[in-house]
Design a protein around this nucleic acid. Structure first.
Length: 924
DNA sequence: TCTCTGCTCAGAGGA
């Protein structure tokens, strides 16, 4: 049986005499059943005492296949021969992280901090892996090489590589794979192996591993192509038991095969390579596959690459995977989990790291020197000022907390039932598979029918986990959602029976924030750090008093452009709702380009980036390059989107020569963008970005301009920590003089804007013109006499007397729909009406009753409608975190231009002073 | 049970 729970006590490791001789043990006390049971003692024997040494009170411990061990009068358990001991199983460790930890724990840490930079061996390695996958999927070798090298065009170009030389090198690597694959096929033709393969799969009890035969046999166009009943490429594995996730390069008859594009002339595979393959073996065994062998394929071990060397030239090296090795792998994984639990920094002494030949030695010494960390390699240079080290450590911790919240999302993949997942909007279940068809490039198009009208957070273009119904232990692959209607279409690398589609959590943004903080603190300009750490005030250059204004009909906007242009460090533009933020941004970009600057235009969302670009193009500027994924970039900006595929030199030149590059901040943290340099970075929606998120863009430029409104929605983060405050807000509070507030709004009537202006902008926000101030529904041709009396005013309040049920309020939803109908009946175009609710459940509730746009506050930020109806849902009191942050209300109320109707329970709203004032204003 | 966008995902290597 499995024993699992939080540790209450961790005993010392001691040696005892048993009938088998002297043996080590450690006794740990935990509270089983998720902390609910009575404390029990668990005895860890032998090498598992290694994990006991890393265990601490408060950590979660799992012992699989534990045996009952009632020693004396004490109830307890002990490890058995079959047991695994897992520390913090909820902490998901990547297989590649275990690999690098085994190489050196510092390398693991450094990789996490700084990411893997753009370098040729890595890019080439990726291409060779993709070609390998293609060969297994039966793609023609030359077609695959052409295709995959073209795909890496931009990265290769930035590295100064020519297409032909890369293709030649990939071809040499592929020769080793090809030769080995055809050997495998020869033996299969002998008879025994093919049958064995089918048997092995059939006896595993895992039908998903055995049913690859229905992939239609188009492997024939590659001469010597693989036997498809024997091979499967790229297999995604997540283990709830061991807290490990990863993706195996390939499985051959259920056994893991790892491809390495280097050379290894020793008889044995490299140790860390074996560890990696053993991790996959561990995960496959959990699924009941009998794995006893791992294979490593070294592509440079061919006669062509031999040169003067001698040694073992066979590309494939097999090794046996026994329980002892798997135990070792789990113990290493536990070390990582324990390190991350208390967030200690690895020194290199934890494992037997050898520094003398290490490629990272210099980096390692510099990082330990600057951050004053203990390191086996030693330290170089002076430590950074203390406040910078503190900042680094605090941010590091905050990001790791965020990572844990992401892990909690993974956990839901297997802890929640399918129905719970669906109710949580995180999955589409009960899909009926319709077809699986190859679409070239080794990709598959999966289609399924969706019978229910279920909604979820999944949207077209998202990456999601497609599975046969069981994402954790069945067959699951990541794919991109192409269509999401009555028919669901997903594109994947592998044919999956599409029965379920899950939101797949990603650690990508946490990783990118880590590298942004690293780049800022360790590689950033000291002069900039002086300002951002408050050691100096931001500086502005001289103004040309005789110059023509940039914008002549709006003083604040003109001042914002002037500030941005003269800033020597940074400038801040505070843009409340409707104040022409986007227009001002475009004007700033043009002014900067006119002065010879290369500009990075960035924002949190793709939508904001495209909006800014649109404004820029409307002002006649067309020389911008949009960097982003095809699905992320809006249709009308595809013509200026950087296509990464193609001729390397040409692709690199396109990026390097663009005077304005536009991308989301997340993209700014990507490997390619991190190599780019700009004079100025302009970041929109800066108040919705975490500080590290903003740094990702700001790091790439000498100066920066942040545009945002800290009175609207703050960053969305899962953990409760310092990431919740944006850099924009910190700077505008510390340096009010570096900011300009755009104070004239072009959106709302006087009546609508009054409350927001008073509550959030010190009464400084005012209508830009008398026309804006005085606009009413009559301007839309509506005769207000046709409206019910309670909707007659520009701002109105309706109490429907409903009751909150969970996060919805059906009676209120009815009333909201009736209000919408009344506006329509009076002549308002339904397209001019928007409905806003704080909860997704209520959004769905209202959506069933009306055809106008209904969405959450968060999703409505950035847009506006002539008429807005807000549903507050709450009754009795306002006891929900959603009402705590009044900035959310500010966003909701300021979406309306001519009419605003608040629908809610007067008693609940009156219970909080802020909402009471709102009520008073609405009922005036 | 509060709100939720990014990003291909994860992994790709050197001696």
């Amino acid at each position: 049986m499995n024993v699992r729970g939080p540790l209450l006590d961790v005993g010392e490791v001691r040696q005892v005499s048993t009938r088998y001789g002297e043996r080590d043990l450690a006794e740990l006390t935990l509270r089983p059943d998720g902390g609910a049971g009575d404390p029990v003692t668990v005895t860890l024997w032998g090498k598992w005492t290694h994990t006991a040494e890393h265990a601490e009170e408060g950590m979660e411990l799992l012992v699989t296949d534990a045996e009952r061990d009632d020693y004396g009068d004490r109830e307890g358990y002990t490890t058995s021969q079959e047991s695994y001991v897992v520390l913090e199983p909820d902490f998901l460790v990547d297989v590649t992280d275990i690999r690098s930890w085994v190489q050196c724990p510092r390398m693991y840490y450094l990789n996490k901090l700084s990411g893997i930079p753009l370098n040729y061996p890595v890019v080439k390695g990726t291409v060779v892996h993709e070609v390998f996958g293609d060969l297994l999927r039966g793609v023609d070798l030359e077609d695959s090489i052409d295709d995959r090298v073209a795909e890496a065009g931009l990265e290769l170009g930035l590295l100064g590589m020519e297409r032909d030389e890369v293709a030649d090198e990939v071809r040499r690597n592929a020769a080793a794979i090809e030769g080995w694959l055809s050997q495998g096929r020869l033996s299969a033709a002998d008879g025994a192996d093919g049958a064995d393969g089918a048997d092995a799969a059939a006896t595993t009890g895992d039908s998903t591993l055995g049913d690859w035969g229905d992939a239609d046999g188009d492997g024939d166009d590659w001469d010597g192509g693989p036997d498809e009943t024997e091979w499967r490429s790229e297999y995604t594995l997540i283990s709830p038991t061991f807290g490990v996730k990863g993706r195996a390069d390939a499985l051959r008859r259920g056994q893991p095969v790892e491809l390495k594009t280097g050379k290894n002339l020793k008889r044995e595979p490299r140790f860390q390579d074996k560890v990696q393959a053993a991790c996959y073996a561990l995960l496959l065994r959990e699924r009941g596959v009998e794995v006893d062998t791992g294979t490593l394929l070294y592509t440079k071990n061919t006669a062509l690459d031999r040169g003067e060397e001698s040694g073992d030239l066979s590309p494939a090296k097999e090794f046996s995977v026994g329980k002892g090795f798997l135990d070792f792998v789990v113990r290493q994984r536990n070390e990582i989990a324990a390190t991350e639990f208390d967030m200690t920094v690895p020194t290199g002494y934890e494992a037997d790291a050898k520094c003398e030949y290490c490629f990272e030695q210099d980096t390692c010494m510099v990082v330990s020197g600057r951050l004053d960390q203990e390191s086996k390699a030693g330290q170089i240079g002076q430590p950074l000022p203390e406040e910078e080290r503190t900042y680094f450590e605090e941010t590091y911790r905050a990001l790791e907390e965020e990572r844990r919240e992401t892990h909690a999302e993974y956990r839901k993949l297997w802890e929640q039932t399918a129905a719970e997942r669906a109710a949580d909007d995180r999955a589409l279940i009960d899909l009926t598979p319709l077809s699986r068809e190859p679409i070239g490039d080794g990709r598959w198009r999966l289609t399924a029918r969706k019978d229910s009208d279920a909604v979820s957070k999944l949207r077209e273009g998202d990456v999601a986990l497609a599975s046969d119904g069981d994402p954790a232990s069945g067959h699951a692959e990541l794919g991109r959602i192409e269509k999401l209607g009555d028919e669901v279409v997903v594109e994947t690398d592998e044919p999956v029976e599409l029965r379920r589609l899950d939101v797949y959590p990603s650690e990508l943004s946490v990783s990118r924030m880590h590298t942004a903080v690293h780049d800022f603190v360790l590689k950033g300009d000291p002069d900039r750090k002086d300002v951002l750490f408050g050691r100096r005030e931001p500086a502005f250059g001289a103004r040309d008093a005789d110059a023509e204004p940039f914008i002549d009909n709006n003083e604040a906007q003109n001042e914002a452009v002037t500030g941005a242009v003269t800033a020597e460090d940074f400038a801040l533009v505070h843009g409340p709702p409707g104040t022409g933020k986007t227009y001002t941004i475009a004007r700033i970009v043009r002014a900067l380009v006119d002065r010879g600057n290369r500009v990075l235009l960035s924002a949190f969302t793709n939508r904001a980036v495209d909006n800014a670009l649109e404004a820029l193009r409307e002002q006649g500027f067309d020389d911008a390059l949009r960097v982003g994924t095809e699905t992320g970039v809006r249709g009308d900006m595809q013509d200026i989107r950087l296509v990464t595929r193609g001729e390397p030199n040409d692709r690199a030149a396109t990026l390097n020569s663009a005077p304005v590059v536009a991308a989301t901040t997340s993209t700014c943290g990507s490997r390619t963008m991190r190599e780019q340099e700009f004079d100025v970075a302009l970041v929109d929606e800066a108040s919705q970005l975490t500080e590290p998120g903003t740094l990702a863009a700001v790091n790439l430029a000498d100066r920066f301009v942040l545009v945002g409104d800290h009175q609207q929605l703050p960053p969305v983060v899962r953990a409760e920590n310092r990431l919740r405050e944006s850099l924009f807000q910190r700077l505008i509070e510390d340096h009010p003089d570096a900011g300009v507030m755009l104070d004239r709004q072009y959106r709302m009537s006087q009546r609508i804007q009054a409350f927001s202006s008073r509550e959030f902008y010190d009464g400084k926000l005012r209508p830009a013109t008398p026309e804006v101030a005085g606009q009413t529904l009559a301007d839309l041709g509506v005769d207000t006499a046709d409206l019910p009396p309670e909707l007659g005013d520009g701002v109105s309040f309706v109490d429907p007397d409903g009751a909150r049920e969970g996060n919805a309020n059906p009676v209120e939803a009815d009333r909201v729909a009736a209000v919408v109908d009344a506006y329509v009946a009076a002549g308002v175009d339904p397209d001019d009406i928007g409905v806003i609710a704080p909860f997704r459940a209520q959004v769905a509730e209202i959506g069933r009753r009306t055809d106008v746009t209904v969405d959450t506050v968060d999703r409505f930020q950035g847009s506006s409608e002539e008429v807005i109806v807000v549903s507050f849902v709450a009754t009795g009191d306002l006891d929900s975190p959603v009402f705590e942050d009044t900035r959310r209300v500010n966003v909701a109320l300021t979406r309306a231009k001519k009419a605003l109707c608040l629908v809610g329970d007067a008693e609940a709203l009156a219970s909080e002073p802020f909402y009471a004032r709102m009520l008073e204003w609405a009922r005036r």
